[in-house]
Nucleic acid binder design. Structure first.
Length: 185
DNA sequence: TGAATGATGCGCT
DNA sequence: GCGCATCATTCAT
C-alpha cells in the first residue's frame, strides 16, 4: 500500500530520510517497474538558492507550491528529465530529487528504455537522476502525478536504512553549504 | 582512472 | 541569449 497523504506533509529532510530504501513503482506501458531509492537530495523553499522556487512562483515551479505527494518532473540539459517528490504543505515550496534507484523489478524493460549494452550492470541502469527517468520511461507526461493513487507511486519496502552518507548536493553552484544529499550503496 | 567536453531544448531575464 | 538539480564519450596521465 502507498503511504498516507500526510506522509509528505512533514518536514522535507524527515521525508527524505524516510524515502531511502522505499520502492519507486511505475506501471509503465511495457510492464511494472520497481526501484529501491538509494539517493535523494532535498530542495527546500525560496530561501534555498539551489531550489527552483528560489526565483519565485512561475508556471514551471507552481507545482512545488501545491500540496505534497505529487511528482515534479522537469526537463534539463536538452535531453534529460529529473524526478522529484513534492513535500510539505500548500505555499511551502519544497521537493526531494530522486537521484538514484536500485532496479528491483522490470530490469529488461529498463535495459530497452536505456538502449543499454549487454554487459551493463543492473545498478548502472538507474544510478543517476537522468538515467533513472530514462530507465523508467518518465517524461513531463507524468508531471503532477499523485504518488499515492496514480501509476507512478512510492510504496513501503519494509526495509529500514540505518546507515547512509550525508554530503553536499551534486551538480549545483550555489547552496553547497547545505548537507542535504543522503545516499547509500 | 580522472578530467574535459559536446550534445541538446526549454524556462526565464 | 544564457544557464542549467546530466551523461557518455574522448583524451590525457
Amino acid at each position: 500500500m502507498p503511504f498516507d497523504p500526510t506522509y509528505y506533509n512533514r518536514p522535507t529532510l524527515e521525508v527524505a530520510q524516510d524515502l531511502l530504501g522505499q520502492y519507486l513503482v511505475f506501471d509503465s506501458p511495457h510492464g511494472t517497474l520497481i526501484g529501491e531509492i538509494n539517493e535523494v537530495e532535498s530542495y527546500i523553499g525560496e530561501d534555498d538558492p539551489a531550489c527552483h522556487a528560489a526565483r519565485g512562483k512561475t508556471p514551471r515551479t507552481s507545482i512545488m507550491y501545491g500540496h505534497g505527494g505529487v511528482a515534479y518532473i522537469y526537463f534539463i540539459y536538452g535531453m534529460y528529465y529529473c524526478l522529484n517528490v513534492v513535500t510539505e504543505v500548500v505555499d511551502c515550496p519544497a521537493a526531494i530529487l530522486i537521484r538514484s534507484v536500485i532496479p528491483i523489478q522490470g530490469q529488461e524493460i529498463m535495459r530497452t528504455n536505456r538502449h543499454a549494452q549487454k554487459n551493463m550492470k543492473d545498478k548502472q541502469l538507474s544510478n543517476g537522476p537522468g538515467k533513472l527517468c530514462q530507465a523508467f520511461g518518465l517524461t513531463k507526461a507524468q508531471n503532477g502525478f499523485n504518488l499515492i493513487t496514480s501509476k507512478l507511486r512510492i510504496e513501503p519496502s519494509n526495509k529500514t536504512i540505518e546507515t547512509f552518507t550525508i554530503t553536499p548536493r551534486i551538480g549545483i553552484k550555489v547552496g553547497q553549504e547545505k548537507l542535504w544529499r543522503y545516499h547509500y550503496n
